[in-house]
Design a protein around this nucleic acid. Structure first.
Lengths: 302, 302
DNA sequence: ATTTTTTCATACTCAGTGCATATCAATAAC
DNA sequence: GTTATTGATATGCACTGAGTATGAAAAAAT
């Protein structure tokens, strides 16, 4: 029993005419008759009742046909599924990201990807940069949106592409401005005001590179931060700012997270810049990943 | 692309070793390599990454494999499904029945059939004898439990087998006995008592043969029935008896329908007998029907 | 009733597919 | 450097599956 014979059976079952079925199958009638007969012999029961001028399905044949049709239909879809997998229009893409990306590149990237590849199963996981690289190194996941370490520190197995490079801005309690505790000049906050204010930051282990960027801002000015509170979620940090506990230095894109009682103010002078980019295993040639990279090239997120 | 190549692909995907896969497939390694290569060429993408000593799936191959496995598994079940259909252990059986059978042969028949053939989709339809024969004649349904007409009247296209032949008994209001309105002798009701009592019957068009059997009981004694009420459901008839509206002549098996206030009493002398049997299309060789007939032969329902 | 037509089965031939054997090539292990 | 392992290549052969020619039986037409 092979797929060819089953196809023969189905065609005869549809036409109830060996001659016409053979024509539909692009073959002549005798081998079709033989094919059916050999199938019947293998099954041990007739599929058709043939009188010399009439062909009809046996009860068995009639009940078996839908099962056969379903199995063959599944088989027929395999080349199509293959084509879609090869082109990356089906399959899966597992993307991890740092929480700050949630307010900048991630939404637009995900939206565009889903738009172009609706049948790809896109799974998103929030994780810190180092956890993402560790997972990728273990072969888990396809790509990660990270805050990158120095170029030399990135292992050879990875490729990297910058997505966005944005200055840090200060998130400050609105009341501190109206009460003149902070005094922006030309809409910019001077370094001495920043240094003098209590600070809310990420814990270092959750985002070391981001944390280092903030502390470096203080160190280069001969100061140390007066850290009043650590918080893991960006939303929590902004809530604490809103409550007047202190200020925070956050990526510019966090302006998308509007909250009453909080103002985002540019830093005066050269603001530290936070880079966010995409890493993936250099040797990973998944088509879904390829499509993501292609999309990233086209999007000009900066 | 054919099922053979797909099987080859799956086996190599499982073993990740062309030599061992070939062994599992009962063939040698070179044609297996060629088979995979031709499949890859047809798909236009590699399924495996071969270094000289290592074989691994490409991302595409890994994602395609489960689809292939599922399709082939479906294909593999076809012979088994066929065998079950041929033996009548799967498929469907459409059985119609007259309502009186509900209290005699039907329950035990259905129970036994379900027990022996749990995977057969048994569909039951209540209908009058003439509607059943009409449906069968139109090719609808497999068999029917009917009250048969005279043998000569049964068309040649049908086969028939008697299932049960049971005397009619009188269903009478219990109060009529305690009040001595009816006087059974040796637990039997005499014809004059029956004739003298108001009668509840089926409407003739719903069950002509049963109706005729009852009226014949009166006619042969030179009497006509004093019909006080018609009712279609057996349960309704017995309810009306219980309410003291009259008596009814019903198949003996209705004793299974116990109801307070109703007594079933044998008729004195030769009671009319109601035959119930199974008909089916003589040329119907459905295996499920065959199994039903076999079961009927074994059961000795009488 | 006879002839014609229709339609599935049988007989036989041929080509291509798919497998086998023999061998090569490259890499890893010793 | 040598050997063993393993996938690729080359070549030959057998069998499957399709073709052509024809038969046989029954329905349709005359």
């Amino acid at each position: 029993m092979n797929a060819r014979q089953l196809k023969h059976f189905l065609t005869v079952a549809e036409t109830l005419h060996f001659g016409r079925a053979a024509e539909l199958l692009g073959m002549t009638q005798p081998p079709l008759s033989q094919s059916i007969m050999s199938l019947e012999q293998e099954l041990g029961a007739p599929l058709f009742l043939r009188s010399r001028r009439h062909v009809e399905l046996t009860p068995f044949g009639a009940q078996w046909a839908p099962h056969v049709a379903s199995a063959l239909a599944d088989l027929d879809t395999l080349p199509d599924i293959a084509a879609r997998l090869i082109e990356g229009r089906a399959g899966s893409l597992s993307l991890s990201f740092v929480s700050t990306a949630d307010y900048s590149v991630l939404p637009v990237l995900v939206h565009r990807f889903r738009q172009l590849y609706p049948d790809v199963n896109l799974s998103l996981t929030e994780a810190t940069s180092d956890k993402q690289t560790a997972a990728l190194s273990d072969g888990v996941g396809h790509a990660g949106i990270i805050i990158p370490p120095n170029r030399e520190r990135l292992p050879r197995e990875f490729s990297y592409r910058r997505l966005i490079r944005e200055p840090l801005v200060a998130a400050v309690p609105e009341s501190w401005i109206s009460e003149k505790r902070l005094n922006p000049v030309d809409g910019q906050l001077r370094a001495e005001d920043v240094i003098a204010s209590p600070l809310i930051v990420f814990p270092r282990d959750a985002a070391p590179l981001f944390h280092d960027l903030v502390t470096e801002y203080y160190a280069s000015r001969g100061a140390t931060a007066d850290v009043v509170q650590h918080a893991i979620q960006m939303q929590t940090i902004i809530s604490l700012v809103s409550a007047g506990m202190g200020i925070a230095l956050v990526p510019q894109s966090l302006r998308h997270l509007a909250r009453t009682g909080v103002r985002y103010i540019d830093l005066a002078g050269a603001a530290p810049e936070l880079e966010t980019g995409l890493i993936w295993r250099r040797d990973d040639n998944s088509s879904t990943l390829g499509n993501l990279l292609e999309l990233v090239e086209e999007m000009e997120l900066d």
